[in-house]
Structures are given as C-alpha cells and as structure tokens.
Amino acid sequence: MTTGAPLLALEQVEVTYHRVITAVQGVTLKVARGQIVALLGTNGAGKTTTLRAISGFLGLDDARVTEGAVAYRGERIENRPPHEITARGIVLVPERDKVFPNLSVAENLVANVPRGAPRADLAYELFPKLAELRGREAGYLSGGERQMLALGAAIACGPELLLVDELSLGLAPVVVQDLAKRLQEIRDRLGITILLVEQNAPVALGIADWGYVMENGRVVLDGDAARLGAHQDIREFYLGQSSGERRSYREVKQYRRSRRWYG
C-alpha cells in the first residue's frame, strides 16, 4: 500500500440485514488517493453489500453497519444518508437501474446535485459518443452506451471517489475493454480514485493497482494487483487459468473450505 492516510478506510466493518442476518463481517480495506482498487469475489461474497455500506444505501434495505467504521478522509461516514455521502464526494455507479430511462441523455447528466460546478461537459469529453446521443431517451440506449452514460453522469456529480459496481456485467468483451480504459483515463486525467467491484477478475486486475478478494462476507486475500494476478488460487479460481492438471470437484470444495477458515 502507498504511504499516507488512505482516502477511504473500512475498519472491521460488519453489516447486518433486518437486524439478524450478517452479510459481511470484519471487512477491512483501504483505498489510497489516486488508486484504482479492485474488489473481487463471486456472487454473494458481500461485494455489493460492502459498496452499499460505503455509499449509504443500506438503510433502504433495513440494513445497518453494526460494527466497525467507514472513514472517508478521516471522517466517519457509516450509516449516513446517500445524498450526504454524494455531497462529500463519493459517487456510486450501481449495478442495475443506473440511468433514468425516461430522461434524455443530456437530462441524465444534469439530474443531480453536483459537488461544486456541474460538469456535464466532462462526461461529453470522456465519452464523445454521449454528445451524439444527447437528445435520446436513456431507456433506448444499448448496454454499453448505458454504462457510459452512468459513468458520465457519475463524473458530472464531481466525485473524488468513484464506486463502480460490476462494470462488465452483461457487456461484450470489446466494450468492457474500452470502458476499462476509460476508467483509467478518469483516474489519470481527473485524479478520481476508483473502487471497482468486479466478478471479471482479469479486467479488474488489468487496470487496478491493488486488489481485494472477498468470500463469504470476509476479505480473504489482498495485495498488489499484479501479484494477485499471479497468485495460484486467483489464477485458478478467478482467472480460469489452470496449472495443468484438472482439479476435481472435491478439490474445489476443499479450497473453498480452507478459504472460509482463513477468513
């Protein structure tokens, strides 16, 4: 990890749904300013819950951060309402329902309360295609265009930290490659820190500086993205690159169990 205080730090965070169901437990992760950090894991590992704990969206599902702390620039922000989190400079690009379908592209980019001056122009700059589609209703966009619009609209809010939930979901590999490059551009040109939640580990580790792996509501591995990409388990279970001999079902199960115990 780089030196200095991190922009975002989660310390032993536990999230409880409906007062009884614990979704994530003891999650500790740090995002340093100017980095792209990837959060990997399979379905149900607790990635989205972790994002929601940061973005203030737990309250709507009758969930709360019941233990630990979420600190942004050193200030505690857990269990704060979402619009307040946005005002502090954390903006989420959600997994689903990421655009307003009956608003035009241009309207989508101004339907916000930005931090500082509104920056719809930035979105057009980053995604020139959006400028062409300016007048079209967002409901008629393709999946890739929709993701561009969602990213553009999030940028227009003037974030310091961008949370991206499932960048690659349902998109063609070419489009994903392109979007991943744009994320890098967002970081390099605008200095926006990015926390990227992904199931597609190769894409995420390809652009990230640091990676975390979650399983069963816990962080089980973390490390430099390049090193993580080379990690034996990651290669086998997330990158799908087998080390030669085929693994049996029993071995996979054994692996999962060991992971649970480490956590």
Partner: peptide, 24 residues
C-alpha cells in the same frame, strides 16, 4: 429547470436520484 429535471428523475428512480445527491 434543474429542479424540474431532478423531480422527474426522482419519480423514475428514487434510489439513483439519491445516489446523484438529490434530496428526495
């Protein structure tokens, strides 16, 4: 107007509107 567009946005997807900083 900005407030008008926000109002339409909130009507379509209150969750997303809140994420964009709109006070519902």
């Amino acid at each position: 107007t900005r407030w008008g567009i926000r109002m339409r946005a909130a009507g379509q997807n209150p969750l997303l509107a809140a994420q964009r900083g709109i006070r519902l």
